[in-house]
């Protein structure tokens, strides 16, 4: 006698691809919309907060991104793009727009970096998890905008370089360059080596 495996509707919703949920939403399924929202909103919020450094602005970006997603849902062309990649791309553009509107912050990003440390590892070893997260957030904001976006997508959101290329609408080589320079910049900022921080964006 074979064992019957029962799958709850909630488990099925967990397994459904983002695209299936979006199509179901477009057909009037509010539950699919809520499931998709629960998946995407926290990720987008984490990304936008890291890039923008402010929760309220990050919330605005996520809200606008989700509204755009709901709006295009009926016209979504299946199989052409991943829903999450599309959403990150919209969020990335909205973040870029907001960062470019900020004039004061761009003046001297290095001023925001924490106390310089001669040896980064020695400093990190004595930090709590919370302190580490805060130090990283502060150092990220010392980076030029595009480097910051690429580093966040690669090292915090876990996207591959080709995925980041699609999100940022650039080539894979440009992504590699941005993330490499971004990491160098982070190390320099955290170590207080201001002279190594490059402010050129691309």
């Amino acid at each position: 006698m074979g064992m019957e495996r029962k799958i709850s509707p909630a488990a099925l919703a967990d397994e459904a691809p983002d695209e299936a949920l979006l199509v179901a939403f477009a057909n009037g399924d509010g539950r699919a919309g809520r499931d998709l929202l629960a998946r995407l909103a926290p990720m987008l919020f984490g990304y936008a907060t890291r890039v923008l450094g402010e929760r309220s602005e990050a919330e605005d970006v996520v809200q606008e991104t989700m509204m755009r997603l709901w709006k295009i849902a009926p016209d979504w062309r299946q199989g052409e793009a991943k829903v999450s990649t599309w959403a990150y791309r919209v969020a990335a553009n909205l973040c870029t727009d907001r960062l470019r509107r900020r004039k004061t912050r761009a003046a001297s990003p290095i001023d925001a970096v924490a106390e310089p440390e001669a040896d980064l590892m020695s400093a990190v070893e004595v930090m709590t998890e919370k302190d580490r997260a805060e130090a990283l957030a502060t150092a990220l904001h010392a980076l030029p905008e595009r480097q910051r976006q690429a580093v966040v997508l690669r090292h915090l959101e876990g996207f591959s370089n080709p995925e980041i290329a699609r999100i940022m609408d650039i080539g894979v080589e440009a992504v590699e360059s941005l993330t490499a320079r971004g990491k160098r910049g982070l190390k320099a900022a955290l170590s207080g080596r201001k002279e190594e921080l490059g402010y050129g964006d691309d």
């Binding site: 909103a41 926290p42 919020f45 984490g46 990304y47 907060t49 890291r50 929760r55 990050a58 996520v62 980064l120 590892m121 400093a123 990190v124 070893e125 998890e129 919370k130 580490r132 997260a133 130090a135 990283l136 957030a137 150092a139 090292h155 915090l156 990491k183 982070l186 190390k187 955290l190």
Partner: peptide, 15 residues
């Protein structure tokens, strides 16, 4: 050291 910082920052802020 940078990897340790990335690990700490990966959880991200909660909605």
């Amino acid at each position: 050291a940078l990897e340790a910082l990335f690990d700490a920052g990966r959880d991200g802020p909660a909605v």
